[in-house]
Design a protein around this nucleic acid. Structure first.
Length: 417
RNA sequence: GGGGGAGUGUCCCGAGUGGCAAAGGGGGCGGACUGUAAAUCCGCUGGCUUACGCCUUCGUAGGUUCGAGUCCUACCUCCCCCA
């Protein structure tokens, strides 16, 4: 089905990563005849990346797998300013120390998907703070600003929409695309980077970089964007009641991560298998042919494969195993998320309300009360009907734990220590 | 610089005559049905409390009032029209 000749574009196209490409023939030819360098920019406003960033990460992964060189660009410089596009309130400015911390957490995610020099690969992690922090305003205007035509910038969707709706567009925000364009050229100079990838909303910004590259260095640069991924019901990826689905194990356990993918909707399974696992396409096709109840098998594969990428094969198998014991055999797996509790506290008796809040299954006592009223609370698989129920030593099972459940899907073990 | 309008439950949108813990959606969570899915139906969706009840919420800060999201004043932010 694909019309590309290079492995790189073929893989991306057949797995559903491509939304738009600038000059596809030229890029295809280049990717076929040589090893190219490409980058994607990432914000570092949080200590980890979440599922929403997985798509671009996978693009870098495939880039490297097909013989090219990926650069993960951290927005250390742009984060210092704060992306103004989040309308209502300007974001709190992060301290440099906090940004540094975030960078470390994010870096550990990338090492799972890309091979950096220390593991014998050619992937590069860059930080735009390295060049943005030292920019001199007047020099920058003279060297870079002269190449930007306001007329053209005004025509870009991101700007045009705002102006059409008579909404405020700050000068800072207006400059954001210039900085991003500059990043691209800077990476071209430093690393010979010729391709920038990103979400479809980045198209305008990327194209600006291409333009700047041509004007400054007569370079031919390329853009490739991915479609915006939502679930079939239209929800954004990566948000659950517990918050974002982070990729770091300290923030979201491998078990919960596995569950996130296991609960995917039927209609999303094939698409997600292509995008978020590295399974061969014919295997995915086979899984996609499953109908009705059998599609659960495909979901388990999706969950295990996706989890293995982020947390490693062992953790993924363990999560799958835990899920099987818990859901299919109705049993109790010691691998469920476990909260430790003092023996003395238990002896004195622990109220259900406190216990569930402590276990992180509910945010407040009131929430537990409502859950009880909704028939959703179970201790060792027995319904609790009173918010005055007390958990004591007698509730410890033969396995030495107490199982708390909220609904059928969320379980936590209390372990006396 | 002048005139007009807006900011509501810390997820979003959005009603709101001075008596409101504040209509209604969406989203989320739970229950039923299923396949740990979707669709559908039902319940919940500020905190503390066994409970009476108490506390905290409608841009910010004051004021009027027995009582203010609702009235007054100042300030902040945004939008529209005129200059």
């Amino acid at each position: 089905m694909s019309t590309y000749k290079s492995d790189f574009l073929n893989v991306l196209a057949s797995r559903g990563f491509i939304h738009q490409v600038s000059e596809p023939e030229a890029l295809d030819a280049l990717a076929r005849s040589s090893s190219i360098t490409a980058y994607i920019g990432f914000d570092c406003t949080a200590p980890s990346l979440h599922v929403g960033s997985l798509l671009p990460i996978m693009m870098l992964h495939w880039l490297q797998q097909t013989g090219h060189r990926p650069i993960a660009l951290m927005g250390g410089g742009t984060t210092r300013v704060g992306d103004p596009s989040g309308k209502d309130e300007s974001r709190k400015l992060l301290t440099d120390a906090a940004i540094g911390e975030n960078l470390k957490g994010i870096r550990s995610v990338f090492t799972k998907f890309l091979k950096f020099a220390e593991s014998g690969g050619n992937a590069v992690m860059a930080n735009n703070a390295d060049w943005l922090n030292t920019l001199n305003y007047i020099d920058f205007l003279r060297d870079i600003g002269r190449y930007f035509s306001i007329n053209r910038m005004l025509a870009f969707d991101s700007v045009k929409l705002r102006l059409d709706r008579q909404q405020e567009l700050s000068f800072l925000e207006f400059n954001y695309m210039i900085l991003q364009a500059y990043d691209f050229v800077e990476l071209f100079r430093r690393q010979g980077c010729v391709l920038q990838m990103g979400g479809s909303d980045q198209w305008g910004n990327i194209v600006n970089g291409i333009d700047l590259g041509r004007r400054l260095h007569n370079a031919q640069l390329f853009a490739l964007t991915s479609p915006l991924i939502t679930t079939s019901s239209g929800a954004k990826m990566g948000k659950t009641a517990a918050g974002a689905v982070w990729l770091n194990a300290e923030l979201v356990s491998p078990y919960d991560y596995w569950q996130y993918w296991r609960n995917a909707e039927d209609a999303d399974v094939v698409r997600f298998l292509k995008l978020f696992t590295v399974l061969p396409l014919d295997e995915i096709e086979r899984l996609g042919a499953l109908k009705g109840e059998e599609i659960n098998e495909a979901k388990k594969v999706l969950a295990t494969e996706a989890t293995a990428l982020v947390h490693g094969r062992a953790a993924a198998e363990q999560a799958a195993d835990t899920a099987r014991t818990t859901f299919e055999e109705g049993g109790l797996s010691a691998n469920l998320p476990t909260i430790e509790i003092g023996k003395a506290d238990l002896k004195a008796g622990l109220g259900v309300l406190t216990a569930f809040v402590k276990a992180g299954l509910a945010a407040s006592n009131g929430e537990v009360r409502r859950a009880i009223a909704n028939n959703a609370i179970m201790i060792n698989d027995a319904r609790v009907s009173s918010d005055k129920a007390v958990i004591g030593e007698a509730d410890v099972t033969a396995d030495g734990v107490i199982k708390l459940s909220l609904g059928r899907k969320r379980h936590v073990l209390l372990k006396p220590v």
